[in-house]
Computed example of a mutant assay.
Amino acid sequence: MLQIHPSMDPISGFCHRTRIYTCLRPPIPLPPVDQPLSVSEFCLQTSTGGATTFVVNATTGESLSFSQFFSQVRSLAYSLQQRYSLLCQNNVAFVLSPPSILIPVVYFALLSLGIIVSPANPLSSDSEIAHQIQLSNPVVAFATSETSHKIPTLKHGTILLDSPEFILLLTQSDINDDAVKTVKVNQSDTAAILYSSGTTGRVKGVMITHRNLIAKMTVTRFFNTNQGGSNEEPPRSVTFITVPFFHVFGFFMLLAAVFSANSVVILERFNFEEMLRAVEKYKVTSMPVSPPLVLAFVKSELTKKCDLSSLQGLGCGGAPLGEDIAQRFKEKFPNVLLVQVFSIYSSLSIYVNTLNFFKD
């Protein structure tokens, strides 16, 4: 139990003596701060998915099971160590690619080696990319044939995700955990450099440590398994990720999906009608949405052409959702929980796995 100091308000957690607000929830156990641990290892060691589909590209139908994903992460990490031996821990890898089922493999392989992941919007202009590269100072890049021209010459070059050579890096046979040289990654090490939107000036690079991400995953699981008085593991969900993996929200949701062994559905290029078809085909249970997308759900007649009965919850963020639109959504989809997201760091799995708690 959390000890409440006499000078602390038991309702707000505000201490009149120190003038500090303290969370009134019990502390959540985290790995010892001095324990070497990457967020990749943390997520992979607790994730159990096996033959279950991990990620599917609804545009092409390509998919990866969890077992295939684990195998490709291990193979890529091994290949990078063998072929790019000069890649050192805490070097930065710039990632510039459209949505792809290969992106999660790249992220987790790099994170496991202590290499800092720095993804960017592939639609950014050449000058914007040049500014981001100047900020992060990468030594290698992962891109596609369509985006590689935006990247200047780097120390270890640019690896094309759509090349036969890259596919070979993912398919090294007979690779076990012992084959990959152990890299000591401290939780205080930087895991990723993500970029601000640039609404208050030029884009800024934001450094996030492995412990930041580990704490976020731990909080998500704690919330999921303790709401409503249940200590059982939450049911597996299928999430349609409408936000790109280079975005902070998409980045966190990807980590959370691996950590919780949930399935993920993506589109190469977002289209409302294709999204609805994907919800029907893959029995999507949850997705993050913006107010304009909620409005599209409310107004579009296309929603009547697809079976959306699998949907359980939508997490709306990015801007406040008008009460009128929320009410109209509730009337049209009475069995779908619509939750306003107040923090971009919240994972949608929280909303979906607490449906019964809120309904009761």
Score class of each variant (00 low, 15 high):
176 N>D: 13
256 A>N: 12
247 H>P: 04
60 T>I: 12
347 S>V: 14
343 S>N: 15
212 N>Y: 08
341 V>Y: 06
341 V>A: 15
302 L>K: 09
145 S>H: 09
32 P>W: 10
70 F>T: 06
59 T>D: 09
265 V>F: 03
83 R>L: 10
199 T>Y: 06
167 I>C: 08
138 P>M: 06
119 P>C: 06
137 N>A: 13
23 C>S: 11
46 T>G: 12
117 V>K: 00
333 F>Q: 04
258 V>I: 15
168 L>I: 09
203 V>S: 15
148 S>I: 11
107 Y>D: 04
144 T>D: 02
286 S>Q: 08
212 N>Q: 12
275 M>Y: 12
137 N>P: 01
277 R>V: 04
24 L>Q: 02
226 N>T: 15
142 F>V: 03
69 F>Q: 03
151 I>H: 02
355 L>G: 11
276 L>Y: 04
318 G>S: 08
225 T>A: 12
95 V>Y: 00
55 V>C: 12
111 L>W: 13
312 Q>M: 15
318 G>F: 07
139 V>N: 02
36 P>K: 09
200 T>H: 12
338 L>N: 10
27 P>I: 03
262 N>F: 03
142 F>M: 04
211 R>W: 05
182 T>Q: 13
218 T>Q: 14
126 D>H: 10
306 C>Q: 08
232 E>F: 08
157 G>K: 04
206 V>D: 11
243 V>K: 05
46 T>F: 13
324 D>S: 14
296 A>N: 07
37 L>V: 11
197 S>G: 15
37 L>S: 11
175 I>M: 05
253 M>R: 04
355 L>D: 05
72 Q>E: 15
291 P>R: 10
65 S>D: 04
23 C>Q: 07
234 P>N: 12
109 A>N: 01
205 G>H: 13
182 T>K: 15
359 K>H: 09
123 L>H: 08
124 S>C: 12
238 V>A: 02
332 K>G: 04
11 I>V: 15
358 F>W: 07
171 T>L: 02
42 F>Q: 05
28 I>S: 06
88 C>M: 07
328 R>P: 03
210 H>T: 12
235 P>C: 10
153 T>D: 06
167 I>A: 11
137 N>H: 12
199 T>V: 14
230 S>L: 11
158 T>H: 00
260 S>L: 10
166 F>N: 06
62 E>W: 01
289 V>G: 07
328 R>H: 13
252 F>H: 03
180 V>P: 01
359 K>V: 00
157 G>R: 07
102 L>M: 01
217 M>T: 02
17 R>D: 14
247 H>C: 03
206 V>M: 15
175 I>P: 00
43 C>P: 02
5 H>I: 05
127 S>F: 09
204 K>H: 11
257 A>Y: 00
219 V>L: 10
141 A>D: 04
137 N>D: 10
140 V>M: 08
277 R>H: 08
80 L>I: 12
132 Q>Y: 01
291 P>A: 10
16 H>S: 14
257 A>V: 00
172 Q>K: 10
266 I>V: 09
251 F>P: 00
